[in-house]
Design a protein around this nucleic acid. Structure first.
Length: 507
RNA sequence: CGGGGCGUAGCGCAGUCCGGUUAGCGCACUGGUUUUGGGAACCAGGAGUCGGAGGUUCGAAUCCUCUCGCCCCGACCA
């Protein structure tokens, strides 16, 4: 009998990918379903990851000239109605506030009272309410560009929630900017897409493909939507975030006008862009393994966890003294312009149990320190980017000297591994038959992980797009920005095509 | 809203078909002993208005009626 290696997470990715995803979140203690349907409770470990995402992105926003502000949670219904496409896109998923208080219903309960004269929508996105402010703030070309970001929660009444990937309420940031010219607004749209891409690759260690959305997939009300798409380990695509060029659509809807240098009044050009707590879902699915979460050091809540090992009081004293010394040395180190984040796990528990807990939580570096290490003046190090059996004894001075380099190495290894996976599962396909086989699981009842990104020609017709969606549940994730002009034939209808696009199954 | 399933301890479940004493099991939790560098073992203990309401019955987790909630599959989606 072949002995199967024990994994910390069951089911494994291979056995049941969605099941594995849920279990990783549970094992790492990141979040849980709340009493409110569709809404999750983000627990400290998950929230700390979000805080690191916020912190680093916020710096990048500030570096590109943006400032933070805050706008109301409620949007009067009439504001929402101003942009026709926008209404159509979001109407089906809006939470609506109709009353302002509760009163005794005479049966021991409460009933809503104080009916509002105008209903309020809980923001699914803030273009319209922010537009109302912008119309007052923008008067002259001297007021432009206006570069605002908001960190907020939004509500979209989705039918099928999934922790981090799709919850009724979620946390995000939304940037909203106003520009004097189309060129400026387009430049901003691309700039923020690039910021996101850099963040995804350099911080989350997730390789992404930048591209434009097709007409059917773009943001309701936008002229064009740009996206960055990442491949998860089940070979499906996840949209990480979007940057929209809104043209004059929202300026007209919200009456955002300015006087130009010639003294003439013009509508302004606007953009919006956002990423959400979904990035945490991306992180889990891009890097995690069958022992749980794997966190890139740059956004890990802890870089290093130290697990003391001792049998008695005497050993404990020696080990803890030794660890105090290490703590002091680590405290003076910096990684990615921040202090090293570390923790001594001195809980009254068995060593093995603690060790596995931190493996499941994805901490990049684990140190086991016992009497043996004290006497050899070293630390016993395990790294989350390597097999858990692969632990090495490192001299304490060497460890301290090299820790930032180790973290860089881990960050890079995680990225390279994900990049290799993406490349290996991206295929140029020019034959319709092959395309259909690529996206068809062999076992229909219990589909195995299959497919990937198909880089294929598309004629530009929404009919072909729809046909493929109906046949295979595969959609055009994006038209890559770096797609070269080349002659080819549409994978669906065979007509002339000038570009390849990315097809994939999506979250 | 269409199709399927489930509500019993903090979590996961058995028991329900065929009603019968103090409603069990695993994990988790608390205490103790022995352990400890690859996920500890043993002993003891705490914890439940069996989703809710009504009915049938000497007797209901179990049968009947109504009701509430949740999960999975479809359309939607950062």
């Amino acid at each position: 009998m072949a002995e199967q290696e024990k994994t910390a997470i069951t089911p494994t990715r291979e056995e049941n990918y969605p099941g594995w995803y849920q279990q990783v979140i549970k094992a790492a203690d990141m979040a849980e379903n709340s009493e409110v349907r569709g809404c999750m409770v983000i627990k400290p470990w998950g929230y700390a990851i979000w805080e690191n995402i916020q912190k680093n992105l916020d710096v990048m926003f500030k570096e590109t000239g943006h400032v933070n502000a805050y706008f109301p949670l409620f949007i009067p219904k009439s504001f929402f109605e101003k942009e026709a496409e926008h209404v159509e896109g979001f109407a089906k998923e809006c939470a609506v506030v109709t009353h302002s208080r509760l009163e005794d219903d005479g049966k021991g309960g409460l009933k809503p009272a104080g009916k509002l004269t105008e209903e309020l929508i809980i923001r699914p996105t803030s273009e319209t309410i922010i537009g109302a402010s912008f119309s007052k703030w923008v008067n002259s070309y001297r007021d432009l560009p206006l570069l605002i970001n908001q960190w907020a929660n939004v509500v979209r009444w989705e039918m099928r929630p999934r922790l981090f990937l799709r919850t009724t309420e979620f946390l995000w940031q939304e940037g909203h900017t106003v520009h004097a010219t189309k060129e400026d607004a387009l430049e901003e749209t691309y700039r923020m897409l690039n910021v996101y891409t850099r963040f995804a690759q350099e911080y989350l260690a997730i390789p992404v493909i930048q591209g434009e959305k097709t007409e059917s997939e773009k943001f309701p009300g936008a002229v064009s939507t740009y996206t960055f798409e990442a491949m998860m380990q089940d070979k499906k695509a996840l949209q990480g975030g979007t940057s929209h060029f809104l043209g004059l659509n929202f300026a007209k809807a919200s009456n955002i006008k300015f006087q130009n240098r010639e003294g003439k009044e013009e509508y302004a050009w606007t953009t919006s862009w956002g990423v959400s707590t979904r990035l945490i879902g991306a992180l889990i699915m891009a890097h995690g393994d069958d022992n749980g979460l794997i966190l890139p050091p740059r956004i890990a809540p802890l870089h290093v966890v130290i697990i003391p090992i001792y049998r008695n009081k005497d050993e404990q004293n020696k080990v803890m003294d030794f660890i105090d010394n290490i703590k002091e040395k680590i405290s003076s180190l910096r990684y990615n312009n921040e202090k090293i984040r570390f923790k001594v796990d001195n809980r009254d528990m068995r060593g093995g149990e603690k060790l596995w807990e931190w493996i499941k939580k994805g901490v990049p570096v684990r140190l086991e320190i016992g009497p043996r290490d004290v006497s050899s003046n070293s630390v016993f190090m395990g790294r989350r980017d390597k097999d858990f059996k692969e632990k090495v004894s490192v001299n304490i001075d060497d460890f301290i000297k090299n820790l930032p380099a180790f973290l860089d190495e881990i960050q890079n290894n995680i990225f390279q591994k994900a990049l290799k996976f993406q490349i290996e599962n991206t295929k140029k396909i020019d034959n319709k038959n092959e395309f259909y086989q690529f996206f068809t699981p062999k076992n229909k009842n219990n589909p195995e992980i299959h497919g990937g990104f198909a880089n294929s020609h598309w004629c530009g017709s929404s009919k072909c797009e729809e046909k493929i969606k109906d046949d295979l549940k595969v959609t055009i994730r994006c038209i890559p920005l770096d797609a070269k002009q080349e002659k080819g034939k549409c994978i669906c209808c065979g007509k002339e095509s000038k570009k390849r696009v990315i097809f994939a199954k999506a979250y």
